[in-house]
Structure formats: structure tokens, C-alpha cells
């Protein structure tokens, strides 16, 4: 099967170019296996990966135009020639390895931890099963970045717009019955950029390998803001 892989060496190349590889495909082969095979053919080829089972979130790449985790993308589902590029809109460090610092900075900016005003109880803070259920579809995010780097609004303003990943996380803490910083969190999301650059394009939903729905989370945030404003 033919693979076209984006190559870029900052010391040598002015801009990325595509290089062709021929890889023998076996039953159940995942895209990560193909990338490893390509690395066997050309040791200078660089890409990130670790767990190999869709848990660590390190091997997000752009495959035939969509952002995917290589390790859980069956090669059999892909149309040849398979074009593999780094995440769009991110500065390329080398080949498929991109600089995700802005993505992490946006994550950090939503203060992804529980904030308590009340003194901490002796033991754990209890939640009812219903309260716990509100976190389903939110806490599973593995920070792979497939969503934010598929979001046009994030491409244009990665420094000012939080992007779908960070906004999903913002809602994960707003929705948490144990968190007591609702007003502070909502205030921090005001203004034309941080939240409101989202135009409900839904590229993020399509991209998420964990089946999460950042667009819906963003809708919940806007609704909560509205409720608190009137």
C-alpha cells in the first residue's frame, strides 16, 4: 500500500514536502504500525507515539485530511495513497512532530482543577450518582489535540481563542458539583475571543477520537452564561 508522508527537516528544508513509501499491510494493521514500518525504512523519519491503544493521546496526525490517532486508525479503512501530514496550523518541529505549546497554554488558562471556597472536608467530597453522570463525556478527554487543530477558529486565533479542548475542559469543571468557582470561570471566558470565537462549525466533534462533543459543551457554557446574566 502506498503512503505519502510529509517530511520536514528544519536544518535542510525551506518547507515540507511529501515522500512516498510502500508498506506491506497485514490484517488488523493500524496506522501507527505503518508509521513504524516507514521508520524502519528511513530512520530519519520522526513522529510521536507511546501507548499504542488510544490512551496517551500523543500520536495525533492528519490522515487524508482528517485528524486521527494513528494507533487506533485501521489501515484497511483508509483510501490509498494514504496522505499523512502533521496537525494543520501548528508550527512543525520535524516531519509529523508539531509544537503544541499554545494548545497546552489554552488548557492551562481554563484552570483545569477543582476550586473550593469552603474548607476541605476531612474525607472526600460526596457526589450523587446524577451529579457524577454530568461528567460523562467530559472527563474522558486525553488532550490529543485532534479537535483544536481541526478548528478553523483555533487556526486563526490560537493565542486568544481557547479552542474546543480547553472549552470542553472548562465545562467539565463548571459542570462539576464539587467546584465552587462558577462565577470566576464564566468571567474568565467573557470577551469576543476566548469562548465566542466558536462559530459552531463542529469540526471538533468530527475529529475527536474519543467520541466527545466539545460543541455541545460550548453550548452549555453559553447557556449557563446567559442564565447567570439575566
Amino acid at each position: 500500500m502506498k503512503f505519502l508522508v510529509s517530511r520536514y527537516n528544519p536544518d535542510r528544508d525551506a518547507k515540507p514536502h511529501m515522500q512516498a513509501f510502500e508498506v506491506e499491510v497485514w490484517r488488523g494493521m493500524m496506522l501507527r504500525d505503518a508509521l513504524l514500518e516507514i521508520k524502519r525504512q528511513d530512520e530519519s523519519f520522526a513522529f510521536r507515539h507511546s501507548c499504542g491503544e488510544g490512551v496517551c493521546g500523543s500520536d495525533g496526525v492528519n490522515v487524508n485530511g482528517s485528524n486521527r490517532l494513528a494507533c487506533i486508525t485501521p489501515v484497511a479503512d483508509l483510501k490509498a495513497p494514504v496522505e499523512i501530514r502533521p496537525f494543520p496550523g501548528r508550527p512543525i518541529i520535524r516531519d509529523l512532530v508539531v509544537d503544541m505549546s499554545q494548545f497546552y497554554a489554552q488548557y492551562k488558562a481554563v484552570e483545569p482543577w477543582l476550586v473550593r471556597e469552603d474548607p476541605m472536608p476531612e474525607q472526600e467530597i460526596l457526589q450523587s450518582p446524577a451529579e457524577r453522570d454530568r461528567l460523562d463525556g467530559l472527563y474522558e478527554c486525553i488532550l490529543c489535540g485532534c479537535c483544536s487543530t481541526a478548528c478553523p477558529s483555533f487556526w486563526w486565533n490560537p493565542d486568544k481563542f481557547h479552542g474546543p479542548q480547553a472549552l470542553l475542559t472548562a465545562w467539565r469543571f463548571l459542570a462539576d458539583s464539587r467546584d465552587q468557582a462558577t462565577e470566576h470561570r464564566l468571567d474568565a471566558l467573557e470577551g469576543p475571543y476566548r469562548l465566542f470565537r466558536c462559530h459552531t462549525i463542529m469540526s471538533c466533534v468530527e475529529a475527536c477520537p474519543k467520541g466527545l462533543n466539545p460543541t455541545r459543551a460550548i453550548g452549555h457554557i453559553k447557556q449557563l452564561m446567559l442564565e447567570k446574566a439575566i
Partner: peptide
Amino acid sequence: SRKASGLKAWVL
């Protein structure tokens, strides 16, 4: 105002 430019514009 800067503070209202997100939510208000959206509601509008």
C-alpha cells in the same frame, strides 16, 4: 464594554 462584547453580541 469589553466585558459585554462576547455574550451580548452572541445574544444579539
